[in-house]
Amino acid sequence: MSRVFVISDHHFGHQNIIDFESRPFATAEEMDEYMINQWNEIVEKEDKVFHLGDFSFYNKEKTKAIVQRLHGKKFLILGNHDRGRSKAWWLDAGFEEVSEYPIIYGGFYLLSHEPMYMNKHMPYVNVHGHIHGQKYEGKHYFNACVEHWDYKPVDFEAIRSSLAPNEEQQ
């Protein structure tokens, strides 16, 4: 049975992110290989992965090579660093679907690149990226940035389980 995962902010090929976020790598190439291996360790061919943006700093050829190496069917929500390229560019790079805007998943989860405003009365959870090592408090936010998950996509069932008390209050 296929599973659904989310992940954000790989920044493939971005040497400076290593210093910006204190990532434990010497080079972007070392980082890229580690992140590809971490992804493929848990994602199977038939699984679906929502990437919440800031995927790659490489040209299309190198980006496509990475996308092809990653297991699963990949869906991209454009991040701030992805927006300089068209939806067609990303589709050609190998993503199944590309969205310029947040999407609603499962009628309850708002998948976005940047955190969205969520007040305590809203019945939704915002699964997001963008803020890397930071974290918003409360059950309305779930940070899917690679820094929080050892560079592995997060199984949606784990997200659902971690938020179960919030869902039962509805």
Rank of each mutant, 00 (worst) to 15 (best):
M1P: 00
V4K: 00
V4Q: 04
F5W: 14
F5S: 05
V6I: 11
D9R: 12
H10Y: 15
H11W: 09
H14P: 04
H14T: 05
Q15C: 01
I17W: 10
I17G: 04
E21A: 15
E21V: 07
R23Y: 12
R23T: 07
A26Y: 10
T27W: 10
A28P: 01
M31H: 14
M31C: 08
Y34I: 03
Y34H: 14
Y34W: 12
Y34N: 09
W39Q: 08
W39H: 13
E41A: 15
E46A: 12
L52F: 07
G53R: 11
N59P: 00
A65V: 04
I66L: 04
R69W: 09
H71G: 01
H71Q: 13
K74A: 05
K74G: 02
I77H: 05
L78A: 09
G79K: 06
N80F: 08
R85Y: 13
K87R: 14
W89C: 03
W89D: 04
L91S: 04
A93M: 01
F95M: 01
F95V: 00
E96D: 05
V98F: 02
V98C: 01
V98T: 04
S99H: 15
S99W: 14
S99V: 01
I103F: 09
Y105Q: 03
F108C: 06
P115S: 13
Y117E: 09
M118N: 04
H121Y: 13
M122H: 08
H128D: 07
I131L: 11
H132S: 11
K135D: 04
E137T: 06
N143G: 13
N143V: 11
A144W: 08
A144E: 11
A144K: 11
H148T: 13
W149G: 02
P153N: 10
I159G: 00
R160C: 01
P165T: 05
E167M: 12
E167Y: 14
